[in-house]
Amino acid sequence: SAVVMEEGSPGEVPVLVEPPGLEDVEAALGMDRRTDAYSRSSSVSSQEEKSLHAEELVGRGIPIERVVSSEGGRPSVDLSFQPSQPLSKSSSSPELQTLQDILGDPGDKADVGRLSPEVKARSQSGTLDGESAAWSASGEDSRGQPEGPLPSSSPRSPSGLRPRGYTISDSAPSRRGKRVERDALKSRATASNAEKVPGINPSFVFLQLYHSPFFGDESNKPILLPNESQSFERSVQLLDQIPSYDTHKIAVLYVGEGQSNSELAILSNEHGSYRYTEFLTGLGRLIELKDCQPDKVYLGGLDVCGEDGQFTYCWHDDIMQAVFHIATLMPTKDVDKHRCDKKRHLGNDFVSIVYNDSGEDFKLGTIKGQFNFVHVIVTPLDYECNLVSLQCRKDMEGLVDTSVAKIVSDRNLPFVARQMALHANMASQVHHSRSNPTDIYPSKWIARLRHIKRLRQRICEEAAYSNPSLPLVHPPSHSKAPAQTPAEPTPGYEVGQRKRLISSVEDFTEFV
């Protein structure tokens, strides 16, 4: 048969007729292969192709491409040299491709048809291009793949890379869960390890502090508590009631339409708007009261037996805890006409967050109470924005700035309102402590230090009264110190430094 060459192609190359033996071998191979691939376009007849790359030819070592076609129900084999250009295909004639002069020997084609199974398996396991790669995943090629499931790999992101949580363990979102698992493993320790309690022994800490320079003076030496005195035992138990972190309780009120001037209507609300609910979820963490331990979680007086509701929101960081007394989460009882059960919590909070959804101005004093010092007013606006402002009593104007209003988005509203309420509550605590000038409020841990110092002074006084020969370590507060001759004046800087060093040991009130 003659071949018409394309323009620009090399000279004529004689194409030899395939021997009958080659056709029989390739026909047997075509019957084993699956003929249901995917359909081509209507211009080209339905056909199945599979590209198999052999590394070497037997005796020649030339890479070839073998295409199996099922045109007219008769499979045909096409061998081509890759750099050459194939002729145009037609549905009426068999596929013809040019070969190099080196394939002119018909014996070479017979060798190609009689490829060993080793070469076929190696060509099938190679990388296939384009559409033949999808075909190689079918059941027909499963014989050339190794048996057994593939090893499982770690989760992959859409980009093909490992997620960040699997790369950096410290930033993994499941870090707290692993800590819980470690605690569970520790709890399952053997009885021999049960006595080993991690941490620092208080006796060891005391020993280090006792021999430090801070205890060089007799006034700073630790003293032993009497065991037989019940009054001192009660004082030590009272110390446990003062937490070592700051605590805040903040009221949250929802004002519906037409309720801006009605205290009873505001306290009777059992739910609010959708934006109000989203605002609550951002204030803190939802907790169930019956599962809380009052000595570990500050509840601000809420009952854990269901008297004040089942849930509330709280927030904490390293040095403070805040609980929100939310009116809509507290039960509304029919027998309580004046809502006294709610007001006994909300009316005693220094700061209230008022979500004013009424469309009218909310005035300070609508919720009557002796300790309502500051109101954080949240007014929802259009386009997911809110107006946040402050209202306070006249005696609080020096501590709280009420002249600045803020426009905040719904997303950042819980954070801004919480921070403003916490700052206002700190100012309210300082303002409330002014009624007792001898006990200015600095912080909870300073209050613990003052309680310890008062307890020490009482013990020293009782020891001096029981044994008059012992001198008083600290003179009583009601006694007057003996007159001392004025010492020589020293520079102001040295006096300030000495006073600062003494105050650092005794108390921190002056620095606050």
Rank of each mutant, 00 (worst) to 15 (best):
L387P: 01
S273M: 01
D361S: 08
Q293H: 15
I502N: 15
E257R: 09
S231R: 10
H431D: 03
I377A: 03
V351K: 01
K342L: 06
D291T: 11
V236H: 08
I242P: 08
I377G: 01
N425K: 01
N386M: 02
G369D: 08
V374H: 02
Q321S: 12
E488V: 13
P226F: 10
P491V: 09
M426K: 01
S428G: 04
L422R: 01
M420G: 01
S428W: 04
V351Y: 00
E384C: 09
L280T: 04
S219P: 13
A487I: 12
V323D: 08
K290G: 08
Q241C: 09
M320K: 02
V400D: 03
G369Q: 06
A421M: 00
L299N: 14
K343D: 06
I223H: 07
R450E: 13
H375Y: 15
L267Y: 08
P468M: 12
N220M: 08
G256K: 04
D246Q: 06
G306Q: 12
W315I: 03
A322Y: 06
F311M: 06
V495N: 14
V297T: 11
A464N: 09
Q370R: 15
D395E: 14
S231F: 09
P475L: 14
N356V: 01
K480L: 12
L239R: 07
H325D: 06
D361K: 06
N227S: 12
G300H: 14
D318E: 15
D439F: 08
A405Q: 12
E278L: 05
V335E: 14
R454G: 15
C392N: 02
V297G: 12
K444I: 10
R339W: 13
E397Q: 08
R275H: 01
G365K: 06
N386Q: 00
I287A: 08
M396L: 14
Q497R: 13
F311K: 07
R500A: 12
R275A: 01
K499E: 15
I250L: 04
L264Q: 14
D357N: 09
R434I: 10
R234E: 15
L264W: 11
P471M: 08
L225Q: 13
N220C: 15
R285H: 13
R450Y: 05
S262T: 04
S466I: 09
G258C: 04
D334K: 15
K333L: 14
A463E: 14
E397N: 07
S403H: 07
A421Q: 00
S358E: 01
S231E: 14
V473M: 13
A405M: 14
A481R: 10
V404P: 14
A424S: 06
R418E: 02
K221L: 15
L225S: 13
I367C: 08
K444T: 06
C340F: 15
V400S: 03
P380L: 00
A251K: 04
F279E: 01
Q457A: 11
D395T: 05
S268E: 07
K337C: 12
V400G: 04
N356P: 00
P442V: 07
L302C: 14
A417Q: 01
D410K: 00
L455Q: 09
H345P: 05
R456M: 05
Y245R: 14
G256A: 13
R434K: 11
S352D: 02
R498D: 14
A417M: 02
H375F: 15
P222M: 06
P489L: 12
T438P: 07
V351P: 00
A481H: 12
Q457C: 05
G492P: 14
E397I: 07
I353F: 01
F508S: 15
I377T: 05
A487N: 11
W315G: 04
D341H: 15
P442Q: 07
T366C: 07
P380T: 00
S479M: 12
N261T: 10
Y276L: 01
Y274C: 07
F232T: 09
C340T: 13
S219F: 06
I223D: 11
R450S: 12
N227F: 07
C292I: 12
V335K: 12
R339C: 15
W445K: 08
P442L: 07
H316F: 14
V374W: 02
H345F: 14
E510R: 07
V495I: 09
L470P: 15
T509A: 11
R339A: 14
V236I: 15
G369R: 05
M396G: 02
C314E: 15
F232P: 07
T332M: 07
G365E: 15
G300V: 04
I326H: 05
Q321D: 10
K249Y: 15
G301F: 03
D395L: 03
V376L: 05
R500I: 10
P442T: 09
D295S: 06
A481T: 13
T485M: 11
V354F: 01
Q497A: 15
I287W: 05
R450M: 08
K394C: 13
R434D: 07
V388C: 03
K221H: 13
Y493A: 13
A463Y: 10
H345D: 06
R500F: 09
L238F: 12
L470K: 15
A464E: 10
C292E: 08
C314V: 15
K342S: 06
Y274S: 07
N261W: 03
D357Q: 03
L501W: 08
V351S: 02
P468H: 07
V323E: 14
S231N: 09
I287G: 14
P482D: 11
P380F: 00
V495G: 15
